[in-house]
Computed example of a mutant assay.
Amino acid sequence: MKGVIVGPYWQGFKRSLVTYTRIPLKVDWSEDIKHTPAVCFLPWIGVVVALLSAWPLWFDWSASLQALLMLLTAVLVTGGFHEDGLMDSCDGLVGGWDKEQRLAIMKDSRIGSYAALAIWFSLTLKWLLLTELLEAIPSSFLGFMYTLSAWCFVHILARVLPLVLMRRMTYVTAGKSKAASMIASLNLQQWAIALAPCLVFGVLAFNLFNLLLTVFFAAMLVFFIGLYLRKKLSGFNGDTLGASEQIGEVFVIVCLLVSYS
C-alpha cells in the first residue's frame, strides 16, 4: 500500500531529476508507469542543485572564490540547462522581427551577440551579488546554516517562476520540442508539493515581513515577464522558461542581499 502511494511521487521526482540535471539515474519512461508530473518537483530539484553546489562553503576561502565555484558547480550539475534557455531567448526575442522568426532563432543552436551579452551579464551579476552576500554574512555555524538556506531558496523560488508562467500562459513552439512533453497543468495537491520547499527554506532565509515582500515582488516580476512574452510570442516555450529561472536567481539574490543588509 505504501509503495502504491509513494511510487508515483518517486517516479515523478526521478524523471524531474534526470530531465533538469546531469545526475546519472536510470528511469523507465514508459507511459503506463503511474507518475506525478515531473515539473511539480522542479523546486525540489533546486534544493538538490543548491546542496550539491554549496560545497565551497565548507572551506575557508575568499567569498569571491566560493561564489565562483558555487555558480560553476550549479552549471555543471544542471548542464547549463537554464543558461541555454536564457541565451536562446535573448537571441530570439531581441533579434527576431516577428513571432515566427523569434521561434526559429530560438531553435538555432548558434550563439548570437544578444546571447553572449546576456550570459556574460547574468553570470557576472550573480557572481558579484553572491560575493557581496557571502561577505556580509558572519563566519560562524549559524552564518553557515543561514547561507545554505539562502542558497537553497535562490534555486527554489527561481524555479517556481517557470511553473507560474506555465499556469498562466499558452505553450508555443516551432516544430517539435523536447520541452512539450514536460509541460503540465498542476492541480492543487501538486502545487502543494512544488511550493513546500519554498515555504520551508523561505522562513529560514527571511523574516516573515521580508519573505512576504519577496513573494510579492516575485509575483510582480512574473507578471511583467508574462506581459513581455505575450507581446513577443503570444505565449511561452522551453527557452523562455529557462530564461525566467535565470532572471529569478538574480532577483532572489538581490532580495537576500537587501534583506540581510
Rank of each mutant, 00 (worst) to 15 (best):
V47D: 01
M106L: 13
M145L: 15
E249Q: 14
L86I: 11
A63R: 04
R15E: 04
V77G: 00
V6K: 06
E31M: 09
Y146H: 03
S234D: 11
K99A: 08
P197Q: 08
V48Q: 00
Q11I: 12
Y9T: 08
D84I: 10
L212P: 03
S62A: 11
W97N: 14
A118F: 01
V4E: 13
A243M: 12
A174M: 13
S140F: 03
F224C: 11
R167Q: 14
G12F: 04
L68Q: 05
D84K: 08
L186A: 03
L199W: 15
S16V: 05
L233F: 08
T173P: 02
T173K: 10
V27K: 11
G95L: 07
S149D: 02
W44V: 06
S16F: 04
I33L: 10
K231C: 12
L157A: 11
V48T: 04
L134E: 00
L211V: 10
G202R: 03
S89D: 02
A136Y: 00
I5F: 09
P138N: 07
M182H: 13
I111W: 04
S140G: 00
V39R: 03
L65Q: 11
L213A: 09
K107S: 06
P138K: 09
W151G: 00
P24Q: 11
F216R: 10
S140E: 00
T131K: 05
V48L: 06
V200D: 06
A116Y: 02
E135K: 08
A194I: 01
W58I: 07
W120N: 13
T240D: 01
V94S: 13
L233C: 12
V94N: 10
V164M: 13
S16R: 01
G202D: 03
A38Q: 04
K176R: 15
V200I: 15
S109A: 15
L142C: 02
I183T: 06
W29S: 13
C198F: 12
I225S: 09
R159I: 02
A218E: 01
S181W: 10
P43Q: 08
Y228M: 14
I5C: 03
F224T: 07
G79W: 06
L129D: 00
T73H: 05
L133H: 00
K232S: 13
A67D: 00
D84A: 13
Y171I: 06
V172L: 11
T73Q: 07
A63L: 07
G175E: 07
T170Y: 14
